[in-house]
């Protein structure tokens, strides 16, 4: 299945096992370091903070001893029908490349923030200030990712640069860059997760773990009924966690509204 933005042979996707996530935040830190997200002067100010990957805390709403929590890491969903792409007046964000990663080209962005308003997952962030690295910390900057100036929107890009590097490595080795093995391209958050909660790979490729996981009966996607067709899946054996992924009526069961899965 595909959205209005073309059919791709490769669909990079993520499956996050919420029963394995301990909420440690290693994915957030790894993402920030990998993608040159500037050091936040006050990370408690959620209006100004930038987190391409953000861990939310879910609660089942019951009191002790029935209280349970779950942690939900939220990258960009790389939707099959990305609302941000539809509203962008400057073609900054597109879904036009094999792999289905929703791109973001910072120099084109003029900061209208329509995309932020349209994104149902709040995956997009606006640079209210020019990024500043405390003296010495600029040495941690990665040359593989450009730094974003004040006035533009940014978001997770599934460590797209790592994909480009993996493809180049395959080309030099004489292998097919369009048939990468799973381990050739992994995002920083996937590798940083100490508990293996995040799995990354090609949803279309049966040899990649995500293909099977996304078909699991415990798999779900966030706000699935909006029809955004995210390429990020979650899974949990706990019914209340799956219910937290969308808005349900009291008599609705979670499996009943699941959209068709990609084959």
């Amino acid at each position: 299945m595909s959205g209005h933005y073309g059919q791709f042979d490769i669909r990079w996707g993520m499956v996050i096992d919420l029963d394995k996530c301990t909420g440690c935040g290693a994915c957030m830190v790894a993402c920030q370091a990998e993608n040159n997200v500037a050091i936040q002067t006050d990370a408690s100010n959620k209006r100004l903070v930038t987190n391409w990957m953000l861990v939310f805390e879910l609660s089942n709403g019951k009191s002790f001893p029935d209280h349970e929590v779950a942690y939900l890491p939220r990258p960009c969903m790389h939707c099959g029908n990305p609302s941000c792409v539809a509203v962008c007046p400057a073609t900054v964000t597109t879904k036009d490349e094999e792999g289905g990663i929703v791109s973001q080209i910072y120099p084109r962005c003029f900061g209208c923030r329509y995309c932020m308003a349209s994104c149902p997952y709040h995956a997009r962030y606006f640079n209210w200030y020019d990024p500043v690295w405390p003296e010495g910390m600029e040495k941690t900057l990665s040359p593989d990712v450009s730094v974003r100036p004040r006035g533009v929107v940014e978001k997770c890009h599934f460590c797209h640069h790592r994909w480009m590097q993996a493809k180049d490595k395959a080309r030099v080795a004489g292998e097919d860059p369009k048939a990468l093995p799973q381990e050739a391209y992994q995002t920083a958050c996937t590798q940083a997760c100490p508990n293996g909660a995040i799995t990354f790979g090609d949803l279309n490729n049966p040899e990649h773990t995500v293909h099977e996981l996304a078909h699991s009966e415990y798999a779900f996607r966030l706000l699935e009924r909006l029809g955004t067709e995210p390429q990020v899946y979650y899974m949990s054996r706990r019914e209340w966690v799956r219910r937290a992924g969308d808005n349900y009526l009291a008599d609705e069961k979670t499996g009943s509204v699941k959209n068709e899965h990609h084959s």
């Binding site: 073309g6 059919q7 791709f8 073609t91 597109t94 036009d96 490349e97 094999e98 990663i101 791109s103 080209i105 593989d144 990712v145 450009s146 890009h157 797209h160 640069h161 480009m164």
Partner: peptide, 18 residues
């Protein structure tokens, strides 16, 4: 497969931008 030429020719933004 309804592949758009643009996809084949790799003119996606992030093909050349990072």
């Amino acid at each position: 497969k309804h592949i758009k030429p643009v996809t084949r020719a790799n003119n996606g933004c992030q093909v050349c931008h990072k």
